[in-house]
């Protein structure tokens, strides 16, 4: 069911629009089968593994009653999952190439690696920071739209001042930071916290951590661009 649309789209464009034979039909069929089995295992694993540990951690930390510990955990979760994120590494390397081609950083491998690493650190810091703010919001019960609209305003203001070359990249950086492992854990953390704390509604207050974590990297990457260019 989940993979059917992909197969239909690919088949339609290949056979009807481009009028070309299917390359490696067996590869496509085996691949489709692997995707289906993989998704089934993933969903099963979510239910019995990732969601329970995320929620039990939220529960245990809330019961400990130490705000400091909870926020440390929140920061570490955001930072550690982002710094190793493959999509981010790819985007950072791409950005480094572009800037060295534009002549803003010296065109040698060392400078490029430094730049890419700096970019990854700033994005990871921004995600850690946004999970901290997001958890704090759940504790305080602030409405999510205040953070999001505040974030939008920051993005708009930064867009005016940031160098043109970095804008598209910065906007994309927001989307790539939240990986398939991070999303279930962060969701479980938020929903878990909102279910334990009195007066919070899991639906209204529990979600929103991911949203903020995809917004802040845009601001940080544009800031990084302004520093470098």
């Amino acid at each position: 069911m989940d993979v059917l649309p992909i197969i239909l789209v690919v088949a339609f464009f290949q056979l009807v629009v481009l009028k070309q034979p299917f390359p490696n039909l067996e590869n496509v069929l085996i691949g489709g089968l692997l995707v289906i089995v993989g998704l089934m295992l993933f969903v099963e694993g979510l239910e019995i593994g990732l969601f329970p540990i995320g929620e039990s951690m939220a529960d245990a930390l809330a019961r400990k009653g130490s705000l400091y510990l909870l926020l440390t955990f929140a920061f570490a979760l955001g930072f550690s999952t982002t710094i190793a994120e493959p999509a981010l590494i790819a985007v950072a390397n791409k950005a480094a190439e572009i800037s060295s081609a534009a002549g803003t950083i010296p065109n040698n491998p060392e400078a490029i690696a430094d730049y890419a690493f700096g970019l990854r650190i700033s994005v990871a810091l921004s995600v850690g920071f946004s999970i901290v703010i997001g958890v704090f919001r759940i504790l305080k019960g602030w409405p999510i739209y205040i953070l999001i609209i505040g974030g939008y305003i920051m993005v708009m203001v930064m867009t005016i001042f940031a160098p043109k070359e970095i804008i598209g990249l910065a906007y994309d950086a927001g989307g790539v930071t939240t990986s398939t492992i991070t999303v279930p854990l962060v969701t479980a953390l938020g929903v878990g916290l909102a279910s334990i704390i009195k007066g919070r509604n899991p639906l209204v207050d529990g979600f929103g951590l991911i949203a903020f974590a995809s917004l802040m990297p845009m601001v940080f990457v544009m800031a990084y661009g302004m520093l470098i260019y």
């Binding site: 992909i6 197969i7 690919v10 464009f13 290949q14 481009l18 390359p23 590869n27 496509v28 069929l29 085996i30 691949g31 489709g32 089968l33 692997l34 995707v35 289906i36 089995v37 993989g38 998704l39 089934m40 295992l41 993933f42 969903v43 099963e44 694993g45 979510l46 239910e47 019995i48 593994g49 990732l50 329970p52 540990i53 398939t180 492992i181």
Partner: peptide, 30 residues
């Protein structure tokens, strides 16, 4: 929980291999 984590890891691995075989090459060419 451990079993669940193993499921997630193996599930994602199969999922990515499947996509790499079935979709990505054709998607690029298309």
């Amino acid at each position: 929980v451990l079993l669940g984590i193993i499921f997630v890891i193996i599930g994602l691995t199969l999922f990515l291999i499947g996509l790499e075989m079935a979709l990505f090459p054709i998607g690029d060419i298309m």
